[in-house]
Amino acid sequence: MSRLLSSSIARKIAMALSGLFLMVFLLQHFLINITSVFSEAMFNEISHFMGTNPLVQFALQPVLIFGVIFHFVMGFVLEIQNRNARSVGYVQFKGNANSSWMSRNMIYSGGVVLLFLILHFYDFWVPEMTYKYVEFLPEDPSRYYEELVHKFHDPIRVGLYVVSFAFLSLHLLHGFSSSFQSVGANNKYTRSLKSFGTAYAIIVPLGFAFIALFHHLNTL
């Protein structure tokens, strides 16, 4: 078991599993957020449930935070190891001839997503934690929609979010199919899975961008 956790393949599988977990989370996050476009009441109700349910707050939330931290720390560790594996670089290296830009630049697209997460946590998670667990303010089930709309009033924030979602899309365009390859799933379903992954990588970030723009334009 110790060998499983220390080898290059173990790190690769761990990276893939944490990525798959984050993609599942991202989908549920998107499905909840998109309700804000259709129904204020439904968005408030789901957000209230997520914000007050002890299983979500004290079991799933710590797992999610661990997943995020693990994924980016491991990403940086692997990047350093990989750079060290070639001490003298090539004078000419034609990466475009054999691989996609997305696959070669996961560290940069992931880096932008990480910077976005810091902003996103500052915008939503920190105030939420302060509201509930620092100031112990009385629970108001209708506050979530108002907070969301208020945040997306600022055009600079909306712009930063939209750009970040573009990088998230680039990250997912490689990450989705790559995570299945890493866990050993390369079979007759691979082509269909790749198409599904491409659709996921475009639709979900585009949907998030739409939500931010929708609320921004709605407040004008």
Binding site: L78, N82, S99, R104
Partner: peptide
Amino acid sequence: VAQMDLEGFGNCTNTGA
């Protein structure tokens, strides 16, 4: 795999190159 890691090869990131 243990020998491969010992030799100092990098990690695969599935670029497909």
